[in-house]
Write a protein that binds this DNA or RNA. Structure first.
Length: 581
RNA sequence: GCUGGCGUAGCUCAGCUGGUAGAGCAGCUGAUUUGUAAUCAGCAGGUCGGAGGUUCAAAUCCUCUCGCCAGCUCCA
């Protein structure tokens, strides 16, 4: 349907620009696009509504899509005025005996199909935007204009999608990060994030959380240097495979590299001593800060940085322990994601790529171990053929956020290559030296990216346990300032991250400011509270819990935080995350 | 990196075809002492991203550069 819509769009564009040249026009996840070239001109944004209008007309005409097979030479003759179709026939399709051509309403296009029966079946669509593209996606080739359309079976779905996009725009973590004073970016360091006090509070709480999770599961934390001799990176293979993404520096004429990954450092720690089979599996975790050079055009808020922090881990184990380690890692992933409200998790197993190290037997064993571990747990997964790392197969974990976008987070990879390159060993029960298997794993991946995703997932409405400011105290008048200061001290003494608003403003304004800062608890202190020595609490969700004791508040909040609850108050349903102001 | 768009006060933005900058919010000061989403008034705040150039005159035009945004770097 979407692909058929692309043909209809091409027809509409040809009507506006009769000599338009068409390249490729496939479907996308939510619509379609077509790459076009307008000789001696360009499509303008004013053209989009016109195109859409013509498309509506064509659609209403219910013109049938007719398929015709023709020989390659016949097609070459047929498309003489379409330079890109010729190029396609002479390039990509040069080995084909015959190709197919689809025609609707007098417009013919080279196409493998299939198509819907007639143009009335292309559903609800709209022309979205124009962007730049190149013939075959190579910037050395001729520039084209890519016209994007959205297309869904029904108007309702189209509308739903538009609403979702609007919602996504409002949740943009870059905007929320600015409004909530979490972090900033500066020209002086493109691609590097500057954490502000509130953002760093969240970041540190996240580390604290993941550190505890790792510890619970037998992880031992290490920390390795950020700059290491280039020799090490030659040995690890990063210099050969990853050099373009690395930063280099020199001191005393010796070349160094800033680490883009933590594994070589971890391996040096492992190698610093002899290991018995009794030590395995050895799970070395590292909250590692890595630098990776990325092309300027791909930088994107916290999602794509040039320096970020991984909740990395390297597990050294015997071959027969791999399955068990995978199994417990999967448990960890599901458990951790659940805490953040990511319930919809998709699992992929990526298999041997074209360029790979190690024997087929090794790959088969490792891939089988991954699959068996997942099967035994009853975890459904999909295969990504040939998408594994060059050193081993991997499992990838995707989550769906509350507006149904997919994100890849954790991964666990089996590595036979590094243990070989670095000559890793352990002494087995037989007294002989054996080679351990290395598992690379990360639950959250990049903490920065994870926080970006999480910010958008909750639209900045952090649960109490990770909210940078948990409570703000709002005296109704200056007469309560002194009482408010006492309450502040009490809350802080109980470990609540609290602040006090002493501005000479009305309560309404203070509440508004607190709401905009998305602070979970507003502690309101007026004459009544000062007298009774109680506090009244307004929840961010609008509910009130009036006239309670401070200890009741701190115990309740403490309990909710300890369990990482998403509730703001017991028995009050959690706040629906919306991007509203 | 490439293509296109954008860059004006801390933030969000206005500033027509060139005549050397303006609003709201935030900030500061004062008044007000207020009970569940914006009290009033005053003040202060900008080498218009940066560097060149055209011009009597540049935020406005040109060149370069930096950054941001969208897209591309799979796909008849």
């Amino acid at each position: 349907m979407r692909h058929s819509a692309a043909h209809v769009m091409a027809q509409a564009i040809r009507e506006l620009y009769p000599n338009a040249q068409f390249a490729f026009g496939p479907e996308t996840d939510n619509g379609f696009y077509y790459d076009v070239k307008i000789p001696d001109g360009a499509l303008k944004s004013e053209d989009l509504p016109k195109i859409e209008k013509i498309m509506q007309r064509i659609s209403k005409g219910r013109h049938p899509f007719e398929k015709k097979d023709m020989g390659r030479n016949e097609a070459l003759a047929f498309f003489t005025s379409q330079e890109f179709k010729i190029k396609a026939l002479e390039g990509l399709l040069k080995d084909e005996q015959s190709v197919s051509v689809y025609t609707q309403d007098g417009f013919s296009d080279l196409c493998r199909g299939p198509h819907v029966e007639h143009t009335g079946q292309i559903g609800a669509f709209t022309i979205d935007r124009i962007a730049g593209a190149y013939w075959l996606g190579d910037s050395k080739n001729e520039p084209l204009q890519r016209v994007y359309g959205l297309c869904f079976a029904t108007k309702e779905e189209l509308k739903e999608y538009k609403t979702m996009m609007e919602e996504a725009r409002k949740r943009d973590h870059r905007e929320i990060g600015k409004k909530l004073e979490l972090f900033s970016f500066h020209e002086e360091g493109a691609g590097f994030v500057f954490w502000h006090p509130r953002g760093l509070t969240i970041f540190n709480l996240l580390i604290e959380f993941i550190r505890a999770e790792n510890g619970k599961r037998g992880g031992k934390e290490i920390k390795t240097p950020e700059i290491l001799s280039v020799d090490l990176w030659h040995k690890s293979g990063h210099y050969d495979n990853f050099r373009d993404n690395m930063y280099f520096t020199t001191a005393e004429d010796k070349p160094y590299a800033v680490k883009p990954m933590n594994c070589p450092g971890s391996i040096l720690v492992y190698k610093d001593g002899l290991h018995s089979f009794r030590d395995l599996p050895l799970r070395l975790m590292e909250i590692g800060h890595v630098h990776r050079f990325e092309l300027s055009g791909v930088l994107h808020g916290l999602f794509r940085l040039r320096a970020f922090t991984q909740d990395d881990g390297h597990i050294y184990c015997a071959q027969e322990q791999v399955e068990g380690e995978i199994s417990s890692f999967v448990d960890a992933v599901f458990s951790v994601y659940g805490v953040f409200g990511f319930e919809d998790i998709t699992v992929f197993v990526s298999t041997k790529p074209e360029h790979a190290m190690g024997s087929d037997e090794m790959w088969e064993n490792a891939t089988a171990a991954l699959k068996v571990a997942l099967d035994k747990k009853g975890v459904q997964y999909k295969i990504k053929e040939g998408e594994g790392a060059f050193y081993g197969p991997k499992i990838e974990f995707n989550v769906k956020d509350c507006i149904k976008r997919n994100w890849q987070l954790g991964t666990i990879q089996v590595d036979f290559s590094m243990p070989e390159r670095f000559g890793l060993e352990f002494v087995g029960s037989d007294g002989a030296r054996h080679r351990p298997v290395l598992l690379h794993r990360a639950v959250l991946g990049s903490l920065e990216r994870f926080l970006g995703i999480y910010i958008e997932h909750v639209a900045g409405l952090f649960p109490a346990w990770i909210a940078p400011v948990q409570a703000i105290i709002l005296p109704v008048t200056d007469n309560q300032n002194e009482y408010a200061a006492q309450i502040l001290a009490q809350l802080k003494a109980q470990g609540i991250r609290a602040e006090l608003d002493l501005a000479s403003e009305r309560l309404n304004k203070k509440i508004r400011n607190a709401q905009l800062a998305k602070i979970p608890y507003m502690v309101i202190l007026g004459e009544k509270e000062a007298e009774s020595k109680n506090i009244s609490v307004r929840l961010r969700s609008g509910e009130n819990v009036n006239e309670i004791q401070v200890s009741q508040f701190t115990q309740t909040v403490g309990g909710l935080c300890a369990s990482h609850s998403t509730l703001l108050w017991p028995e009050i349903p959690p706040q629906q995350a919306t991007a509203a102001e």
